[in-house]
C-alpha cells in the first residue's frame, strides 16, 4: 500500500491522531477517555505508518524497541501504586495536588495520571511490539 495518496494522507493524519490520543489520555480522569483508549489510538496511528510505508522503511529511519515501552509502562503503573505506600497510605490510593502555574492557571494533578500513563505505555508497547515482530517476520 504505497500509493502517493496514502503516504500524503498518513503524514498529515498521524500527528493529529497522536495529539488526540494524548488529549484522550489526559482527559481520562474526569471525562470519557483514559490510558487504554489513548494507547490503542496511538498504536493505531503508528501502525498506519507501518502499513503505509512498510516496517523496514520505518525501522531504517528510526529504530524503536516497543517492548521497552511496555516494560517502562508496567513499571510506572506499579511504582505509582507502591510509591503512595511510602507516604503511609494503601496501595494505589490516589493523592490530589492543586497547584497554580503562571500563564496556565490552576491545575489539579491526581496521582492516578501516572498510573494512566503507565497503562498508555503498556498498551502502545504491547500492540506495536506484536505488530513489528509479526511484520518483520520473513
Amino acid at each position: 500500500m504505497t500509493t502517493l495518496i496514502a503516504k500524503t494522507v498518513s503524514k498529515v493524519c498521524v500527528p493529529i491522531i497522536i495529539l488526540f490520543s494524548i488529549s484522550l489520555l489526559l482527559a481520562g480522569h474526569d471525562n470519557p477517555g483514559g490510558g487504554f483508549i489513548g494507547g490503542v489510538m496511538f498504536a493505531s496511528a503508528i501502525s498506519l505508518f507501518y502499513v503505509v510505508f512498510g516496517v523496514d522503511h520505518i525501522e531504517s529511519i528510526y529504530k524503536n524497541h516497543w517492548d521497552k515501552w511496555f516494560a517502562v509502562g508496567l513499571l510506572l503503573a506499579t511504582i505509582t501504586g507502591i510509591g503512595i505506600m511510602l507516604l503511609g497510605y494503601n496501595f494505589l490510593r490516589s493523592a490530589y495536588v492543586s497547584a497554580t502555574f503562571p500563564l496556565i492557571g490552576e491545575i489539579s494533578i491526581i496521582s492516578t495520571i501516572f498510573f494512566d500513563i503507565g497503562v498508555y505505555l503498556v498498551v502502545i508497547g504491547g500492540i506495536l511490539h506484536i505488530f513489528k515482530e509479526m511484520g518483520e517476520d520473513k
Binding site: D67, K68, F70, A71, L74, L75, T78, I82
Partner: peptide
C-alpha cells in the same frame, strides 16, 4: 503481587 510485576518489567529492560 506487586513485587513480581515490578521485577517482571525490570527483567524486560
Amino acid at each position: 503481587i506487586a513485587l513480581p510485576i515490578i521485577f517482571g518489567s525490570l527483567t524486560i529492560l
